[in-house]
């Protein structure tokens, strides 16, 4: 009886955690789907779309999507090699003390708010190095944000490989490079890929740090160089949300949000299933 009651109460308490995501997604679909018409994507003829709303031009939402993807891809391609190098250093060369120091430092930096990294980027890259509001500044700031997460994930993935396996490979006289390629890579690639996809999802959803460092509201279709500003989905939604009184603008914001969430959820779902398979294999 008491068991029943306590279990029931717990389920009731837990309900929000399980129901809220479904409600959020459902509401997002409800508001966002109607706006996904041809003018949103800039597929209608040039004259018409100019007439209907000042928000959409002949390119529709594509510059924003491209900007987000570009930022995310650049950030991850900066962070991933660094994360791999750091975790290999941790596994191959670091002593026990510096190993744990490294993990603590990374965990602490992981918890520092993205906004502060954004401030750092604003001071150092935008003003000190005179890059201006640029793709490069935003990408490096995002890379700094995901670097601790990626590195910790990689370290954990490498730590899960049994030491007996590594030891027997070493006692066969295999070099560090050979062990990494022939013993560690087959064991860890799934977890590494999981981490990478989570990092992509993370970089796609961070808004505050790139607000001052990389993006402008409009006027950019495709960045000319690394040092020119971009537009991105997440900041686009932010600017639109601030104008929330106008129903038409709000509808545009919902549709953009739907696109963004689709992108992000896609990557985190892939990561989820990769991760599940890797834990099945253990």
């Amino acid at each position: 009886m008491i068991n029943r009651a306590s279990k029931f109460a717990l389920c009731l308490l837990a309900l929000p955690a399980l129901v809220v995501p479904i409600l959020c997604l459902a509401y997002l679909l409800m508001r966002g789907l109607p706006g996904l018409d041809s003018s949103f994507f800039g597929l209608s003829t040039l004259g018409q779309s100019r007439d209907t709303t000042s928000l959409s031009n002949q390119h529709g939402i594509f510059p924003q999507i491209m900007g987000s993807v570009l930022l995310s891809a650049l950030a991850c391609s900066i962070a991933m090699p660094l994360a791999l190098g750091l975790s290999l250093h941790n596994q191959l060369y670091a002593g026990r003390r510096s190993q744990s120091l490294m993990v603590h430092v990374l965990t602490t930096f992981q918890s520092i708010p993205p906004l502060v990294y954004g401030l750092c980027g604003l001071v150092v890259f935008v003003h000190l190095l005179q890059w201006g509001i640029s793709l490069a500044a935003g990408a490096i700031v995002l890379a700094m944000i995901v670097l601790p997460v990626l590195t910790l994930n990689t370290i954990h993935a490498l730590e899960r490989i049994p030491t007996a396996l590594t030891d027997s490979a070493r006692s066969l006289g295999m070099s560090a490079g050979q062990i990494i390629w022939h013993v560690w890579r087959p064991k860890a690639w799934r977890s590494l890929l999981t981490g990478l996809f989570l990092a992509i999802a993370r970089t796609l959803s961070e808004t505050a740090p790139i607000l001052f460092t990389a993006t402008v509201f409009s006027g950019v279709i495709w960045p000319d160089s690394l040092l020119s500003p971009v537009t991105s989905l997440q900041t686009h939604i932010f600017y639109l949300a601030q104008e929330a009184v106008d129903e038409r603008i709000l509808a545009h914001a919902w549709s953009s949000a739907l696109i963004l969430v689709t992108l992000v959820v896609m990557f985190s779902v892939i990561a989820h299933f990769l991760n599940r398979h890797s834990s099945d294999n253990e």
Binding site: P21, L28, S205, A208, I237, A241, S268, A271, H272
Partner: peptide, 11 residues
Amino acid sequence: IDILAGIPSVV
């Protein structure tokens, strides 16, 4: 829960 965690803060 993963999906909930993945929803961007701007959304």
